[in-house]
Design a protein around this nucleic acid. Structure first.
Ligand SMILES: [Mn+2]
Ligand SMILES: [Mn+2]
Ligand SMILES: [Zn+2]
Ligand SMILES: [Zn+2]
Lengths: 158, 158
DNA sequence: ATTGTAAATGGGACTCATTCTCATTAATAA
DNA sequence: TTATTAATGAGAATGAGTCCCATTTACAAT
């Protein structure tokens, strides 16, 4: 009986192969790492975890693969403002349960996924997108909405 | 009769001095450049324009001054996803006429300021911030909301 | 105007995330 | 098995931004 992580990794691998790319050991390891975490990992953090599974993988491959996964929309790439990109696996393409936004602590870099208010937000964003697209004749492809501040642990410190 | 740009630059200089900092030629030049543009300039672009006014200014000073201006909230720093920060003068601290969000072209990097829907957006953001602050005991200090896509000129190209 | 002083500067060395290059390896189809 | 060619890993290169420090400059006090 495979656990959820393993199942998810398997599904990802299938999807990946479906696009016609070769499923190498490095790529398997990267997908495994992304599948089994809920964190927002940097390329370096991913590299370290991949290294435990498949020590001969290199940083170049990690970057290359992440870039590819982002392009295939299997992974989301975020910039939380600390100078290094973060990556997060797209869980269900059929959104709803997966769709969330982020709260980022400016002090400890903790990232909280939140789904509260998402419905209101999504509705407003859709409306805004439609209005902007028409007024500026702009094809909107994505948006970024993030809140920054101090988390519970950091706001009282020192 | 000083034009608007000159007036704005003068106002900025006064504000800057009010904080107790020395008004050097480099700083004057940087404020002048920011005052007379509506664009979202990178540090390098600012450096080039400053160089025309005051050729002996260096990049270090441009970066240092921008950092200071951001800290004083006289300038906003943005990341539009192309690997270099952009800077924009805060025009009126008393918001309203100044408050806007951004539409960013992924192809030509053009940035459009828009104020449409701003009221709705601001209201939703305020509500969301309040809810998140309570639920996650998080002190929210700022947010980022940006739309990305293809501008009028780029969407039809090839 | 002159001077004393700390603030600010400029330029070049440095950092560090990411990208590039290229000789070698390995996944897949035949 | 083998041929093909995508993918890799190591390390060099890139480039935005930061840091250091000897020199200069703004400006307050004379
Ligand atoms: Mn997330
Ligand atoms: Mn703007
Ligand atoms: Zn924190
Ligand atoms: Zn464009």
């Amino acid at each position: 009986m495979p656990d959820n992580f393993t199942k998810r990794a398997g599904w990802c691998q299938g999807r990946f192969k479906g696009y016609g790319y070769r499923l190498t050991l490095s790529r398997q390891a990267i997908l495994a790492v992304l599948s089994r975490t809920g964190e927002h990992l940097s390329a370096e953090e991913i590299y370290h975890r991949v290294h435990k599974i498949h020590p001969s993988s290199g940083m170049s491959t990690v970057y290359r693969t992440l870039e590819l996964l982002v392009q295939l929309q299997m992974v989301h790439k975020f910039d939380f403002g600390d100078g290094r990109a973060r990556y997060e696996l797209q869980r269900s393409k059929e959104d709803k349960e997966d769709h969330h936004h982020h709260l980022v602590c400016l002090r400890c870099q903790r990232v909280i996924n939140y789904t509260d208010f998402i419905d209101d937000e999504v509705e407003l964003l859709k409306r805004t997108e439609k209005g902007l697209a028409k007024k500026y004749n702009f094809k909107i492809m994505k948006h970024i909405l993030q809140f920054y501040g101090l988390c519970e642990q950091c706001k009282d410190r020192e």
